[in-house]
Amino acid sequence: MSFLTKSFDNGRIKLKNRLVMPPMATAKAHNDGKVSREVLDYYHEKSKGGYISLIIIEHSYVSEDGKASLNQLSVADDSCVEGLKQLAEVIHKNGSKAVMQLNHAGSLARKEVTVNTVGPSHVLNPRKLNDTIPRELSKDDIRGLTARYKDSALRAKEAGFDGVEIHSAHGYLLNQFLSPLTNKRTDEYGNDIYGRVKFHLEVIKAVRDAVGDDYPVFLRLGASDYMEGGTTIEDSKIASKLFEEAGVNVIDISGGMCGFILPDNKEQGYFASLSEAVKSVVGIPVILTGGITDASAADKFIQEGKADFIGVGRAVFADSDWAKNAMESLQ
C-alpha cells in the first residue's frame, strides 16, 4: 500500500491518503483580498479528481498590517466569508479536504501594501525581502493580534473549511517571535524558547477556544533557521511539545528564516531530518515538505516513519496531474 492509497484516521484527522498540497502564494486574489474567479479556477484545477487528500490554502492575512503582498487572500473581516465559502465548496466537490492558513507577515510586510510594519523587535528581517525595520509590538498590540487570529479562525470555520493552520515559518510574524535572530525582547515574550513561543501559545489557546475542541488546528513550523544564532531543531522539539499540549493537532514542518528552500540542498525531502526529529517527541501527525518531486521518494519517507503526511508543492504547482500520474506509477 503506497502513501497515495494509505488512509489516516486518528479520530480527529481523517484523510484518505498521505498526500498534502502545502500552501503556495498565487497572488490571484482581488486587491481587497477577496476570493476571485482566478483563485477558484486555480484550486479547482489543483484538486480535480480528489487525488490530493488535503489542500492547505495559501497564507491569508489576519489583519491589514499583516498583509505580505499585493493580491494576497484575506481572512481579516467578515466580508471575506462568502468568497471563502465558494473556495471550500470547489475543493470539497472535487473530493479533497481544505484547510485555511492564517498569517501575519510582521516585518516581511511590503511597504507598498502596508505603512505600519510591525515585529517582535526593532530589527531587520534576515530574509531581506524588504529593507524595513519594524516597529516593536507592545503587549497590547500582541493581545490585539491574538484576537485577530481568533476571529480569522472562526471565519474559516464558518466558511466550511476542515481546519485552520497557524503560520509560524518562512520568516513571518510568529516565526519572528520564535527566532532569536528577530526576537530580541527581554520581557516574557523573549529570551529563551519558552518566552519566544508565548505568543504562539496564546494564539493557539484563543483559536482553540473559538473553534471548539473537535475542529482541527494545524501549525506550520519553521523548525530551523539554518543560520548561526537562529532557531535550532532542539528549540523546535521543545516548542512542538508545547504546541501539542496547547491543542495543536498537526505540525507542518518547513524552514524558518531560510524560507521554504535550502539553497545548497537539492535532495528529495530536504527537511526530513527536521520532521523526523519533531515526530520523535510528539504524538500528533507531522507533515514533511521540501523539494519532493518523486513519488517513490515520498513513499519511502512514510515507510521509514519520517513523517505521517507528505507535502508536494512545486511539483503540483507545475503539473496539476502530478498526483494522478504518481498514483499510476506506484501501482
Score class of each variant (00 low, 15 high):
residue 4 L to S: 01
residue 6 K to T: 13
residue 7 S to G: 04
residue 14 K to C: 12
residue 18 R to A: 09
residue 20 V to E: 07
residue 20 V to W: 14
residue 20 V to T: 06
residue 22 P to H: 02
residue 31 N to D: 14
residue 31 N to Y: 01
residue 36 S to G: 04
residue 45 E to D: 12
residue 47 S to P: 13
residue 49 G to H: 14
residue 50 G to H: 14
residue 50 G to P: 12
residue 52 I to R: 07
residue 53 S to R: 12
residue 54 L to D: 13
residue 62 V to Q: 06
residue 65 D to T: 09
residue 66 G to N: 08
residue 69 S to Q: 10
residue 69 S to C: 04
residue 70 L to P: 03
residue 70 L to R: 13
residue 71 N to I: 03
residue 72 Q to L: 03
residue 78 D to I: 08
residue 81 V to H: 05
residue 82 E to T: 13
residue 84 L to D: 10
residue 84 L to C: 12
residue 85 K to C: 15
residue 87 L to Q: 13
residue 95 G to C: 11
residue 96 S to K: 07
residue 98 A to P: 05
residue 98 A to Y: 04
residue 106 G to T: 09
residue 108 L to H: 01
residue 109 A to S: 15
residue 111 K to V: 14
residue 114 T to Q: 11
residue 116 N to W: 12
residue 119 G to V: 13
residue 124 L to H: 14
residue 129 L to Y: 10
residue 132 T to I: 15
residue 133 I to H: 15
residue 136 E to G: 11
residue 138 S to M: 10
residue 139 K to V: 14
residue 139 K to F: 04
residue 141 D to P: 07
residue 144 G to M: 06
residue 148 R to M: 13
residue 148 R to T: 14
residue 148 R to Q: 15
residue 150 K to Y: 04
residue 153 A to Y: 06
residue 153 A to W: 08
residue 155 R to F: 11
residue 156 A to I: 10
residue 158 E to C: 00
residue 162 D to F: 01
residue 167 H to A: 03
residue 170 H to C: 02
residue 171 G to C: 02
residue 171 G to K: 03
residue 172 Y to V: 02
residue 176 Q to F: 01
residue 177 F to R: 02
residue 182 T to Q: 07
residue 189 Y to K: 11
residue 189 Y to G: 11
residue 190 G to K: 11
residue 191 N to P: 05
residue 193 I to M: 12
residue 194 Y to P: 03
residue 203 V to E: 03
residue 208 R to V: 02
residue 208 R to H: 05
residue 208 R to E: 06
residue 213 D to H: 05
residue 214 D to Y: 04
residue 215 Y to H: 01
residue 216 P to L: 08
residue 219 L to C: 02
residue 225 D to P: 09
residue 229 G to H: 04
residue 231 T to C: 09
residue 237 K to Q: 15
residue 238 I to E: 15
residue 240 S to N: 13
residue 242 L to S: 13
residue 244 E to I: 11
residue 244 E to D: 07
residue 246 A to N: 07
residue 247 G to H: 11
residue 248 V to F: 12
residue 249 N to K: 08
residue 252 D to P: 00
residue 258 C to Y: 00
residue 259 G to F: 08
residue 263 P to W: 09
residue 264 D to L: 11
residue 265 N to I: 10
residue 271 F to A: 10
residue 273 S to W: 05
residue 275 S to N: 08
residue 283 G to C: 04
residue 287 I to Q: 09
residue 287 I to K: 07
residue 289 T to M: 12
residue 292 I to D: 05
residue 292 I to G: 09
residue 295 A to Q: 02
residue 297 A to T: 00
residue 301 F to C: 00
residue 302 I to V: 01
residue 303 Q to T: 00
residue 303 Q to M: 00
residue 304 E to T: 00
residue 304 E to K: 05
residue 305 G to D: 00
residue 307 A to I: 03
residue 309 F to D: 08
residue 310 I to P: 08
residue 311 G to V: 12
residue 311 G to M: 13
residue 320 S to F: 02
residue 322 W to C: 02
residue 323 A to P: 00
residue 324 K to N: 03
residue 327 M to E: 15
residue 327 M to P: 00
residue 331 Q to E: 15
